[in-house]
Computed example of a mutant assay.
Amino acid sequence: MVERMGLRERKKRDTSLRIRRIAIELFVERGFDEVAVAEIADAADVSKMTVFNYFGSKEDLVFKPMEEHTGDLARAVRERQPGESAVAAVHRQFLEQLAARDASIGMSPDPLNVRVHELILATPALLTRTYAWSARGTQLLAHELIAEADGERSSPDEAVARCAAMQIAAARTSLHDEIHKRRIKGEGVDEIYPTMVTLAQKVFGLVENGLGEYAVRR
C-alpha cells in the first residue's frame, strides 16, 4: 500500500504520524489534561490549525488510529464464508491480526503502542471514550446480525442477536486486555504470539460452545 501512495499522500501520512507520536510522548510525560494542542503544534513544528486538520480533537490524537477499526467485528461477520459461524469468523479475524502483528489489537512491536494503552488507563476521560468505542463496535456487530434476521426489530431475534454480539465482543476484548497486560510487563510480540493463539482457541471456544449453532450462514 505504501508503494502505491504518491508523494503527497506519503508526506501527509508522515506528518500525521509525527504529530501523533509527539503528542503521545507529551501526554505520557506530563499527563493528557496538562498538555495543550498549541504545545503539541510547537513541538511538531506545525501550526495549531495543522494539528486540527489531521485530528479533529485533542482526544483524536490518541484514538483516531484505533477508531478506524471500530467496525472490525461487523466486517468479519459480514464477510464470512458460507457455513462459517459468527464466532468462527471473528476468531479467524483475530488470528489474522495476531499473525500480522496488528497494532489495533496491541501486537505492534512499536513501544508507542504500549504507551498509548498506559496513557488511556491513567486518564479517566480517555478510558470513558474507550468504553464508548468498544460499545459502538459491539452495536455495529449486533446490527449486522439483526440485519440477517428476518424478524421485526421488536422480535426476540433482536435480543438474541444483541446477546450474541456482546458475548463475541467480550471474548475479543478479553484477549486484547491480555495482550496489553503482557506488553506492559515487557513481553515482546513474537513471544506473546503462540500463547495468544492458544488462548484465543480457549476463549472463542467458550463462546462457540454456547453459540456454535447461531448465525451459521446457509
Rank of each mutant, 00 (worst) to 15 (best):
L199D: 00
R13F: 12
N209Y: 05
S47D: 13
A135D: 05
A200H: 03
P194E: 12
G6I: 10
E144A: 11
M1L: 11
P194A: 13
S47E: 08
R4M: 12
G6V: 12
V87F: 04
R13E: 15
D60S: 14
G212N: 07
K185C: 05
K58T: 12
E213M: 13
R183L: 13
L199F: 08
L17E: 15
S154I: 00
A74T: 08
E187F: 12
K11S: 07
M107R: 04
V62R: 01
L73V: 06
E118Y: 01
P82C: 04
H143M: 13
E68M: 08
R92I: 01
F204I: 02
G106V: 05
G83T: 09
G83H: 04
I24D: 07
L141C: 14
L175T: 02
E25S: 14
T128Y: 09
A149W: 13
R162N: 08
H180A: 05
I179R: 00
A170V: 00
F52V: 06
L119V: 11
E84P: 08
T195I: 14
E29T: 09
I24F: 05
I168Y: 02
G188F: 05
R80S: 08
V37C: 12
I146R: 15
G106F: 04
G6P: 10
F55K: 00
T198Y: 07
E144H: 07
V35C: 07
T173D: 08
V160M: 09
I120G: 00
I168F: 09
K181S: 11
D60W: 03
A159N: 03
